[in-house]
Design a protein around this nucleic acid. Structure first.
Ligand SMILES: [Zn+2]
Ligand SMILES: [Zn+2]
Ligand SMILES: [Zn+2]
Length: 316
DNA sequence: GAGTTTGAAACT
DNA sequence: CAGTTTCAAACTC
């Protein structure tokens, strides 16, 4: 019963007492932070929940290197509070502020909006929360401005059934941070090149791995970047080589795919011809003869040789 | 799949 | 503004 969901007014008065003006979340955040430090929560439990994010989702149709899957990189907008999952004491009970799932939104305390609480009994001193007691309030689907698809969020409201609620949440996020939901990396505007709006701060990747937001977006580092040992500047040889290699790999993949489909059709033709020869009275097995095996082997050999050629070309 | 590396965002 | 912490994605084996 201790995990029950209770109602809002359980929140301690100190939180309410301080501020009535609607001026800002930052005030609330401060207050909540103070509460947090008082409780002395172990670090692992203080689940900071991240907030709507401008995600660099611009995905250029043509250049799907490797998987083509872009990590939905979080470019956290400043000015958006991150105090979801706050823990508040009351009568020896730790309460965890939960919010409507998947809206990446700060529960509004002073406005008295209703949200649920998970209550966990606590002895004095440090508190340990089980991880399942901490709901995941951050949802990447929402951050992407999308409806929830295959995320394992519970009690999800980020769907068409809750359209009103959802658009309210979006609006609220945009009010706090006008840049929320806005892809911060690329705008391929005519004339000027697209670039990272803030630049990266890479130290160890040389900006040649997807850890680097610039590299991930396939753009060179700029003067805005504060990276060390950068090998992703416009004029950098390493960058150019890598790009070349990537292109070559891309070509290779395409050619292999083409070869595969060719082989596949050839096999289909073969089996069709077998069927044609088989007038119904005899088993097809009889026609897997030396002739057929030879033809198949030739196909495979041809494909192998082509792949070899391509790999050779790449290595030059 | 487990374990490590990495850097953005948050926080101080 | 710099140093620290956090944490999930990228990466490695
Ligand atoms: Zn970088
Ligand atoms: Zn950069
Ligand atoms: Zn760089």
């Amino acid at each position: 019963m201790t995990d029950d969901v209770t109602e809002t007014q359980a929140i301690t008065s100190p939180v309410m007492a301080t501020q009535e003006d609607d001026s800002g979340i930052s005030e609330k955040s401060k207050i909540l932070s103070n509460v947090k430090t008082e409780i002395n929560i172990t670090a692992a439990n203080a689940s900071k929940t991240k907030v709507p994010a401008a995600v660099s989702t611009e995905r250029e149709p043509g250049n799907s290197l490797s998987t083509g899957q872009h990590r939905p990189r979080l470019l956290m907008p400043a000015g958006v509070p991150t105090q979801l999952g706050q823990i508040i004491t009351k009568d020896g009970v730790v309460q965890f502020v939960v919010q409507q799932q998947c809206f990446n939104q700060l529960p509004s305390i002073s406005s008295g909006k209703s949200f649920s609480l998970t209550a966990i009994p606590v002895s004095a001193g440090t508190v340990t929360l089980s991880s399942e007691a901490i709901p995941n309030n951050y949802c990447e689907c929402f951050a992407n401005g999308e409806f929830c698809k295959n995320c394992n969020c519970t009690n999800c409201h980020n769907n068409i059934e809750h359209e009103n609620e959802r658009s309210r949440a979006i609006k609220a996020c945009l009010e706090r941070n006008p840049h929320a939901f806005r892809p911060k990396i690329g705008k391929a505007k005519e004339g000027n090149e697209r670039r990272h709006s803030k630049g990266c701060n890479c130290k160890r990747s040389g900006c040649l791995k997807n850890y680097c937001e610039c590299y991930e977006a396939k753009i060179p580092c700029t003067v805005l970047c504060k990276c060390t040992n950068c090998k992703n500047r416009e004029d950098c040889l390493e960058r150019k080589n890598l790009m070349q290699l990537a292109d070559a790999a891309d070509i290779r993949v395409k050619q292999q795919t083409a070869a595969k489909s060719k082989l596949s059709t050839q096999i289909d033709d073969l089996s069709a011809s077998i069927s044609a020869k088989n007038d119904g009275s005899r088993l097809p097995l009889n026609f897997i003869s030396a002739e057929v095996i030879k033809a198949t082997c030739n196909c495979l050999l041809k494909q192998a040789q082509e792949s070899e050629k391509v790999i050779h070309a790449v290595n030059i």
